[in-house]
Write a protein that binds this DNA or RNA. Structure first.
Lengths: 154, 154
DNA sequence: TATTGTTATACTCTATAACTATA
DNA sequence: TATAGTTATAGAGTATAACAATA
């Protein structure tokens, strides 16, 4: 008998392991494109258009000084550029450079590919159920904290 | 009408957001006990008993030198202790101190509490389905990579 | 005064390369 | 020779506190 003897993961343990797995995949994908996970996350966050520093600190849950450093390094690598805000001379908006746009798209798509592969073994039905269960958890969290868009990746 | 108009998350996006949420919760719980996430993870990994450095590098996916530093700092804080391996004089085993055991348990339980709360809104049935869907994904990953126990948290 | 962002400083975390000691 | 672990070094990521400029 070589049956897989599932140890029947506890629910929370299953969640934690899944999160670590996704995190690993994210790190691997970032590394493939010579990005740190934080840089990859920043790029993914900027795909839809320039974002201000303050909004980024909320999305990334970083102190503003930490974000300054992250943006500094990304800018030095030519991935993003600071553009002045036309309505508030104190503020600036962070935009992707063509290079950053390219890498951001690669990272995002690479992530999607990997996760699709990982979930490929799941029957369609179970997959949908997983999707809606997750949506339920995210909704619960949103309701509790009031953050309409937690970190998210785009 | 204030209906929640779910944007119908894509499957992979749902996974990524869930992972970030769990990661945030983990960071918050660690911080509550004045631990870095890495220290908390280390403590959780040692709850079942002492573990050797080499095994820890695999569990945490770190280079050995990175682990040396992590253990150094945890040891300096009195959370863990290096004990000599009785069968191999090159090797050592990392064990929790009473303080580390206490904090590890608090972090682990705090994590479980938070995630339970988060999933409290899910109907029993959906929760079970989520658990088994995750088990399926983890099994797929295990089958692909051959790692019997990815990172995991205990 | 409050907000936006940067600078200065100090840690933690991580990796690569070279090293020591034991197997 | 190979393995277990440490040391040296460098860079990324993060936070706190103090600051400058604008609102």
């Amino acid at each position: 008998m070589v049956t897989t003897k599932e140890p029947v993961l506890g629910f929370t343990e299953a969640l934690v392991r899944l999160a670590h797995l996704v995190q690993q995949v994210f790190e691997d994908v970032a590394k493939e494109h010579d990005l740190t996970p934080q840089q990859a996350q920043l790029l993914c966050l900027l795909i839809d258009g320039p974002v201000g520093m303050t909004e980024l600190t909320r999305a990334l849950r970083l102190e503003k000084s930490s974000l300054t450093g992250l943006v500094d390094r990304a800018e030095k690598r030519g991935l993003v550029a600071r553009t002045r805000d036309s309505h508030d001379r104190r503020a600036c908006r962070i935009a992707l450079t063509p290079d950053g746009e390219r890498l951001g798209a690669l990272a995002h798509d690479g992530m999607a590919d990997r996760l699709e592969t990982l979930a490929a073994g799941l029957p369609r039905e179970q997959r949908d159920l997983l999707g809606s269960a997750i949506a339920g958890i995210l909704a619960e969290h949103t309701a509790t904290t009031g953050h309409p868009r937690p970190p998210a990746d785009r």
